[in-house]
Nucleic acid binder design. Sequence first.
DNA 1: TGATAAAGTCAACGCTTGTTGATATCAACG
DNA 2: CGTTGATATCAACAAGCGTTGACTTTATCA
Lengths: 200, 200
Amino acid sequence: MSSERSAKRSGRRPGPTTTREAIAAAARRQFAELGYDRATLRGIAGEAGVDAALVVRFYGSKDGLFQEVMALPPAVAEAMAGLADGPRATVGRRLAEVIVGMLENPQSRSIVLGRIRSASSHPDAAALVRELVTRDVGRLVAALTDDEPETRAGLVGSQVVGLALARHVVRVEPLASLPAADVIDYLAPTFQHYLVEPLR
Amino acid sequence: MSSERSAKRSGRRPGPTTTREAIAAAARRQFAELGYDRATLRGIAGEAGVDAALVVRFYGSKDGLFQEVMALPPAVAEAMAGLADGPRATVGRRLAEVIVGMLENPQSRSIVLGRIRSASSHPDAAALVRELVTRDVGRLVAALTDDEPETRAGLVGSQVVGLALARHVVRVEPLASLPAADVIDYLAPTFQHYLVEPLR
DNA sequence: TGATAAAGTCAACGCTTGTTGATATCAACG
DNA sequence: CGTTGATATCAACAAGCGTTGACTTTATCA
């Protein structure tokens, strides 16, 4: 019905609208909104305008789809790692800006929310959240201090996933409706403390 | 509906091992470990040693079972509200003690984890988490300050659910293996800040 | 005792899920 | 033309789910 093949072969660099990508986008949206269990192959395929069997043909299985579609865009990981270069006295605020910004952008929010929302029921998703904390946050902390860096990364990560859950999943008010700038103001001191101040 | 047989055999006041309670205990355990979707009536009934139909007969439906079994024991709510009475300079630490303690005790941990783990997929569970934050944490904050108490409660709540998720669901190391006393030390300044210090 | 209601089991229902194999469509290329 | 390989649909599968109604067992009490 809606097969838009305007430019199929020509050298479109970012390859904008292949069917495969339409499926990936629909999958990200539904995994983020419903979690792994409630998101169904039929629902995802329907949103992408194709048959469920085609999803399996492309991605092998529902698990394969989830894994492939929930890869964190490298830009976020780089942004976090780059934070260690700036002034140490304001690193907490800059991290808050990156985190809140990541949750405002629809693309990266889908991925992070999909991971967190699915972590409760899908072991692979839990592993992806663990990786987010230990690897991406961990790299930043390791560049900042030698004093219990893994513990600090875990504390930062706990506040990150807690914010995502409270603000975007459970929608605790007024936290859910607060402007991003306010949330950054509120979180900055906490991150600053977890990152560089004496822990106890 | 729930005809309470006050004394059927002898005057057992705490009535420890009725079939109904065995089902409730199994349900709490499985909701906390698997989340609402992955926990099944057949699995819960099996752990309690009865047939799945009996669970429905007692609790009406899976939703009814969840709601009835996930009620927060009043002791926790009271402990949190009572925190406002002590010295204001250490209220953050005392809250950290209550929160971490609540997550160490198997009974209350099952309830809190069951709520949080199910919040991702079950709207009613999300409402229960919201209630935990706005009502139980909210009461404490309201007794402490008039400066944006709902926002402060939301921030505290976000760190609470984040800790529960990171430490007990996703199991981020070393956070998951840390002694409770250490976690209390680490969280106390954050709670102190969210509760009574100037927010920005 | 027998009546009565609760406690408990059993088999089956309707439905949804992920996955599969057979089949159709269609552009590309010899 | 015909073959090929990717793209896509369709119907069906086996399994698991919550829920239901009929049934048996057990215990209480007039």
